[in-house]
Amino acid sequence: MRYGMVIDLTKCSRCHGCVAACRVEHFLPLHVTWVKLIAYETEDAGVVDVSTFPVRCNQCKEAPCVDVCPTGASHQRPDGIVEITASKCIGCRYCVIACPYQNRTFLSKELDPGYFPGHARTRFEEKGKKLYPHQRGTTMKCNFCLERIDYGMKNNLKPGVDRDATPACVNTCQARALTFGDLDDPESNVSKLLRERKPIQLQRELGTDPSVYYIDGKIGGKDNKAPASAQTGSHIQHLSSVEARAREVFPHLKENK
């Protein structure tokens, strides 16, 4: 068994729903995000466009972060998920350096000032501290919502199919760009997608064998833009903000007609 995720870039509407869902699910501190959207600019015949690319911990099969951890705090579960046991982490940050995907975060005091710095914690935060206590001075990252997977396994639910056993970002994705499941099961949704489409892994040449795959290799190309059917208010709102920002940075940009 090896859990993995397939991200269909042609469907992603860049709504940041996965980012928000992850933050809420794990009560993440103010300046920490486990799921990130990379922004990058492309230019086609003088027309500059900004695209996004969702990334998270790749749960590598040959994880460098696990190899370098001096205490065994970073370890791989039998289902392939790379987990950090915070109580064992000494905060050496070797894993942060060794991760080729820069998907680990060292939780310092600066990253966790409270949701409203200088004010008392909200009830939401207080609850989060009990339900999902993040330890300052240790490293953190996406864990495929393993608490949901564990809950699902105990209750005969199927991760990737049953919502209660599926990562929060996958449940939230409005465009259904994220698919989760067992990569070793040939009948799982992810395995079918991998067979039918051409998946890519990030920095495959490093031999880390990530469990997160991306559909559509035309990164940054025209085909990578979300179809009109997937565009929502939030999508358009986001794009307009990006365009406004791009014009601030590149004032010479021509009108995109």
């Binding site: 940041h16 980012v19 990130k36 959207l37 990379i38 922004a39 990058y40 996004t52 990334v55 995907y101 820069q102 986001h238 903000s241 990006v242 920002r245």
Partner: peptide, 8 residues
């Protein structure tokens, strides 16, 4: 707006 990550 939500900040995207250009650093990668």
């Amino acid at each position: 707006w939500i900040t995207t990550h250009e650093w990668m």
